[in-house]
Design a protein around this nucleic acid. Structure first.
Lengths: 192, 192
DNA sequence: CGTTTTTTGTAACTAGAGTTCAAGAAAGGT
DNA sequence: ACCTTTCTTGAACTCTAGTTACAAAAAACG
């Protein structure tokens, strides 16, 4: 039949994801991609059609791969309140460790592209909805356990937490001060 | 002596600001700028040196012109709590009315450029600090008046509000649902 | 009114973006 | 062994970004 691919497309998407994540969509060039993926220009376009299409795959990969840690913490064991704290602390730690300050690729995509590209916007919304749902079920669990006051609207609180984590991503881009971000997260938790 | 400019540089910066605000830095081309400002390419570069330099001026203009409404509301009359609510509602209303979903140019700059451009990052931080300071003094006023519980750390609350407004900008990029944003703001206020 | 100085519009230039294509090469089926 | 298919490489192509050069023109001032 046909010749086999010499590179692993999955690994290539991972590398493209790193590129787009760090530099954004518009500021990433085919040249950089070719160098980062270690393949020829032809192979790039043969395998991925266009820069735009590759970005979309990269963002989907991010959604599957990098977005789950937060969900795992929220869906994990322990008191709801503690899980919410752990989730925010996870983000703060990630932001502080992120020396390149790439932030969250979904947040970046939301700001750079969601207003002009409906497909990207849809993907962003899907990510947000999933995170919001995880916040919400954690909060509802806490309310059932009496851990969190039951007279609050769990949906509203969940949307609020979603806002908070996106706000943290933005602040960290300009000034990733650990103490400040920690206190921030602490304050957000005091809403409960 | 010398010939005078035919166009108003200030007005030109305003138009450039609109462009960069709506499209971001990388996605805005000299061609678009020339058309939007209604001047020739030569005049553009004669007056503003480079795209980068013009962007910087545009962002400074935004800082001076578009960032003040929030401060005015916060520094205005009335009970502190009401001013904080009005400030958040102002942002929500602006986001909802923003049919192009340009969001906040400073938030956009933070996400697109602050991690790679120290000058932009500095400008972003300055904006954030000013907003945070306004939140803080409003909160402290509220605490003196007994309007806001005095045992909370005003600085931490101010940083928290700053996060919230940036989070709202991000969410609104993907899904500017008025009801959701309003309830969000309401929930954030319940931290007080 | 003429000199000076700056502006302006147009063309030009370089570099690179984003994509395509031709020629060959590996894999497998017959 | 050959044919087909799909891969790879690298050059090539078009288009535009971002900037500069230049000649003409026009305003301010003496």
């Amino acid at each position: 039949m046909a010749r086999t691919k010499e590179f692993d497309p999955d690994a290539a998407v991972d590398k493209a994801m790193e590129m787009f994540w760090a530099n954004g969509y518009a500021a990433t060039t085919p040249q950089q991609l070719v160098e980062a993926l270690g393949i020829g220009r032809g192979s790039l376009y043969n395998a991925f059609t266009s820069k735009r299409a590759l970005y979309e795959r990269a963002l989907r990969r991010y959604y599957e791969r990098e977005t789950t840690r937060l969900l795992q913490v929220l869906d994990g064991p322990g008191p709801a309140r503690e899980r919410l704290r752990a989730a925010l602390e996870l983000l703060v730690a990630a932001a502080v460790d992120d020396r390149e300050r790439r932030g969250c690729m979904v947040t970046n995509a939301a700001v750079e592209l969601a207003d002009r590209d409906e497909v990207i916007a849809h993907l962003v919304r899907r990510t947000f909805e999933r995170q919001e749902a995880a916040f919400r079920s954690t909060i509802e669990e806490g309310q059932r356990d009496g851990d969190i006051s039951a007279d609050r609207d769990a949906a509203a609180l969940a949307a609020f937490f979603l806002t908070t984590i996106n706000g943290i991503q933005v602040l960290a881009k300009a000034d990733p001060d650990p103490r400040r971000l920690s206190r921030l997260a602490e304050t957000a938790l005091s809403v409960l």
